[in-house]
């Protein structure tokens, strides 16, 4: 099976590149890479709901923002807390908020699910904006990154972006792996089956509501971890971390990258961050160009950038190589 060997080789190269990245690239690029990793996790969590469960949450930014705020609030008010425990609490908070929102929304038809999750996100945005005593509203809160305590192995300072990058790489890789394995469990299979034909699934004994609630809550865990990582990375959080643009970015990244494939959103996140970096150096209206790319991809039913890498093209490419 030459094909699978090539895939392993490719993944190996990508892994190596990611590990050596800070040594070969400049500071700016390390920043970008860290952002790409974080948003890849965010987009992936979005696609668990959209691509694999058939629900379109326009309000996913809420879960990202919850993670961002919870992390900063812990750093601020519980400075001694071990970093890894903070990650866990952030994850849990996202899962719980998602479970709560899901209780109301998951039963609804596509359009209503989309807009009511959006309404929930705007609601949380309003709380973040108005509850100044807790969140400092638009001004936001700054923190300094605490050290990573590797119980027994000493402390790793998180002052350098390089270290933040590596921590992010580890956490995001673990997150992506967990999501990937999730889809291979019976519960993951239930999620996909329910999306395929919910009527048939329910007559086979599948509880459609609980299944959708489960995947939505699960997705909330990783969205909030991404949010927490982001506010940790930026050493800052404010209402922009839980606003409409954050919700839209998940939609854009996933659709542009491709929702039909597991790694599609990751590609979309890379595109999003690089595109933003590139276009915003030329014009401050880069958002509209992104929106245009998005609309065009939906309009032409392109299926996203990941389709540039689909099996047929790779096979054609390989067969041309062999000749």
């Amino acid at each position: 099976m030459i094909r699978s060997r090539i895939y392993y080789f490719l993944w190996g190269m990508i892994g190596l590149f990611l590990l050596l990245l800070p040594k070969v690239l400049s500071m700016i690029h390390i920043h970008l890479a860290t952002e790409i990793l974080i948003f890849a996790l965010f987009a992936l969590s979005f696609n668990l709901v959209f691509g694999y469960s058939g629900l379109l949450p326009f309000g996913h930014g809420a879960l990202f923002g919850v993670g961002a705020y919870v992390a900063v609030l812990i750093f601020k008010h519980f400075p001694g807390m071990p970093l890894l425990l903070t990650v866990l609490i952030t994850a849990l908070s996202g899962g719980l908020v998602a479970a709560f929102i899901g209780l109301f929304c998951v039963r609804l038809k596509a359009a209503y699910f989309a807009l009511i999750t959006l309404a929930f996100q705007m609601f949380l945005f309003a709380i973040a904006l108005k509850w100044r005593s807790l969140t400092y509203g638009e001004d936001g809160m700054s923190i300094t990154r605490p050290d990573l305590n590797l119980f027994g192995f000493g402390n790793i300072s998180m002052h350098s972006v390089q270290n933040v990058y590596y921590l992010t790489l580890v956490i995001v890789t673990i997150g992506i792996l967990i999501c990937y394995l999730f889809l291979k469990t019976p519960l993951g299979n239930s999620v996909i089956s329910v999306k395929e034909k919910d009527i048939r699934a329910s007559f086979l004994g599948y509880n459609v509501f609980l299944t959708k609630l489960a995947v939505y809550s699960f997705s909330g865990i990783f969205a909030s971890v991404a949010g927490g990582l982001y506010s940790f990375f930026q050493e800052f959080v404010n209402t922009a971390y839980i606003d409409l643009n954050m919700s839209m970015s998940a939609v854009f990244m996933t659709v542009i990258g491709g929702s039909g494939h597991f790694m599609g959103p990751v590609l979309g996140a890379a595109f999003y961050i690089i595109f933003q970096d590139w276009i915003s150096s030329m014009t401050q209206h880069w958002w509209i160009w992104l929106g245009l790319v998005f609309v065009l991809i939906v309009y032409f039913e392109g299926g996203g950038l990941i389709n540039l890498f689909n099996r047929e093209r790779i096979d054609r490419f390989l067969s041309r190589l062999r000749k």
């Binding site: 058939g54 379109l56 596509a110 359009a111 989309a114 839209m248 509209i288 609309v295 939906v298």
Partner: peptide, 29 residues
């Protein structure tokens, strides 16, 4: 835009109409 999405299903419609709303907002800006 919408003619095309009648067959595509609700999700495409939602995505396109939301994308267009967004683009209009940016154009206005």
């Amino acid at each position: 835009f919408l003619r095309k999405t009648y067959k595509g299903g609700h999700l495409s419609q939602l995505l396109i109409t939301f994308g267009l709303l967004f683009i209009f907002g940016e154009l206005v800006r």
